[in-house]
Amino acid sequence: MDIGLEYPLFDAADRSIKHLIQRLLKGKSKPTNVHRALKNISASMRDGERIGIVGLNGAGKSTLLKVIAGIYPISSGKLSVEGNISTLLDLAVGMDLERTGRENIVARLYIMGYRHRETAQMVAPIVEFAELGDFIDQPVRTYSSGMFVRLAFSIAVSVDPEILILDEFLGAGDAAFFSKAQAAMDDLTQKGKLLIVASHSMPLVEQKCTRALWLNEGTLMMDDEPRLVVKEYLEFCAAGAHK
């Protein structure tokens, strides 16, 4: 991978036909603000790795995850991804609040490309993993944020992905589920799957990841052992705070 990503930032006025006509008539063209979200990032990630991505807010962590997941197209460079991907990027997104947890599981499985007959036997293990009790048959709008995490994470790990991409996911889950989730992630990587996680939890990155990437303003600052990366990153944060 050696990828760059630029995208235009539109404000509401840019998006109308009125604006387009104005531009055509008056020849007045306000250059659209282009944001370079990722700058020449080069890395390769292999089976069995657990990669932690750290960085300040707005550093490009989520953008990088979305690029790997194929949601954002890259503007330059080359990206090659092999294997099916399961993502957990934003918890509430893609859930129908009026439908029950069970129905949302089925919906998510369809979205991931499973066929009707395959989904039938996949639902039970997910329900079991989520441990939501009777709430699994209640509309999702009645869920607490922790229950959301349980449901979304259970689906993401249970589809047996080759690549699992997680973004700041476990914040709202309780301790019991947290350790269960970690066990599930260990299990995945032992089976030779690739795990990519963006996190602000330094203990998680240090203890659970085999490698860490530090992004700052779209640039890859460091790509090394988690211990070393976290140390450098925390020193950088401390220096920034003193300024």
């Binding site: 997941a69 194929g70 949601i71 993502t87 997104v93 893609g94 979205i111």
Partner: peptide, 9 residues
């Protein structure tokens, strides 16, 4: 967008 920003569909 609530789907396509999360998963490639």
């Amino acid at each position: 967008s609530s789907f396509t920003k999360q998963i490639r569909i």
